[in-house]
């Protein structure tokens, strides 16, 4: 168990190293010049050059990157070019709102996705199934910003059920979380449906029915747990896609999270912040996958991580 976790953490560090290198390289090659951004339109070339030297941007790439890595090892993600504060502070203050939204969003995703998938599988071929298939297609293919705008318009402007945006209590959380959940649920409902249908044809389901168990018990105790097993690793993988949605949804709803920070940083070519956000996202994805791998053996006793 411990060796498994240890090895996985080792791999994770390598992945993170790769991610930071690629992000740093991409930003280095970007035609936009952060020094010019900071200096403003009317600055003289000397001023721009001065800023560049001050930020260390005139150094060759490998030196910049080595410098960054050295600081990273000390827990220092650098200073924001624009906001004149530490990146760790910026991220820290926005971590909690983002985690709240993520938890609520993934919760809704699973709740909606799994229940719709179960209904579709049990009513296979019926009207409900076909309707849900169509809906999940819309969910999967609708762009987040349009869906977010529509939700904002209907539920906040027209119906006034929820506030227009901003950070606050449960009421503020509901609408962005529902947007994320509804859009992401299509994927899960498709997978739960096919996984359920497969399990429904298994011999042990026939056994369960032969025992005289009620239909509800057969579905909840025998079909569902078996159908969920292949879904769990998907949650780990889905976190990456989810992060993309987070950037858009947070910006639309004015949610003061990491996604919004990323959005602002990208517009201002605030490289340390962009790299910081990317690193945090990579950590989240790696962590999500690790947790998924650790949870599966709790549900499926056939999977023994000691053997991996």
């Amino acid at each position: 168990m411990l060796t498994f976790i240890g090895r996985r953490i080792g791999y994770s560090l390598l992945i993170l190293l790769g991610v930071s290198l690629i992000t740093y390289l991409l930003l280095f090659m970007l035609p936009a010049d952060p020094a010019r951004q900071i200096a403003g339109r009317s600055a003289t070339p000397e001023v721009v050059a001065g800023i560049r030297a001050q930020l260390g941007l005139d150094l060759p790439f490998y030196q910049q990157y080595a410098h960054y890595l050295g600081n990273l090892l000390q827990g220092d993600l650098g200073r924001s070019y624009i906001q004149r504060s530490e990146v760790t502070e910026l991220l820290g203050s926005r971590l909690q709102p983002s985690l709240e939204l993520m938890a609520a969003g993934i919760g809704f995703e699973l709740l909606i996705g799994i229940s719709l998938g179960v209904i579709a599988a049990l009513r296979r071929g019926g009207i409900a199934d076909r309707l849900l298939t169509a809906l999940s297609f819309i969910g999967v293919s609708a762009p987040q910003f349009i869906a977010a705008m529509l939700f904002l318009y209907f539920f906040a402007v027209q119906l006034e059920w929820f506030p227009m945006g901003g950070y606050g209590g449960l009421k503020h959380l509901m609408l962005p979380a529902l947007t994320l959940g509804l859009l992401g649920s299509g994927w899960y409902s498709r997978m739960v449906r096919s996984s359920m249908i497969e399990v429904l044809h298994q011999d042990f389901i026939r056994t369960a029915r032969a025992k005289g168990l009620s239909r509800a018990r057969v579905v909840l105790r025998h079909v569902l747990p078996n159908a969920i097993v292949p879904i769990i690793p998907m949650i780990g993988i889905d976190i990456g896609v989810f992060m993309g949605g987070l950037v858009v949804v947070e910006s639309v709803f004015g949610w003061p999270g990491i996604g919004q920070l990323a959005w602002q940083a990208i517009q201002q070519v605030d490289i340390p912040v962009i790299v910081g956000v990317t690193t945090i996202c990579a950590v989240a994805i790696v962590l999500g996958n690790l947790i998924a791998d650790l949870v599966i053996p709790l549900i499926d006793p056939r999977i023994d991580i000691k053997k991996h």
């Binding site: 011999d203 056994t207 032969a210 078996n226 499926d300």
Partner: peptide, 15 residues
């Protein structure tokens, strides 16, 4: 009561 042909797949693997 009933017993089936395939003992390998006739029991729920998660219980």
């Amino acid at each position: 009561g009933m017993i089936f042909q395939e003992p390998m797949t006739s029991l729920n693997p998660l219980m």
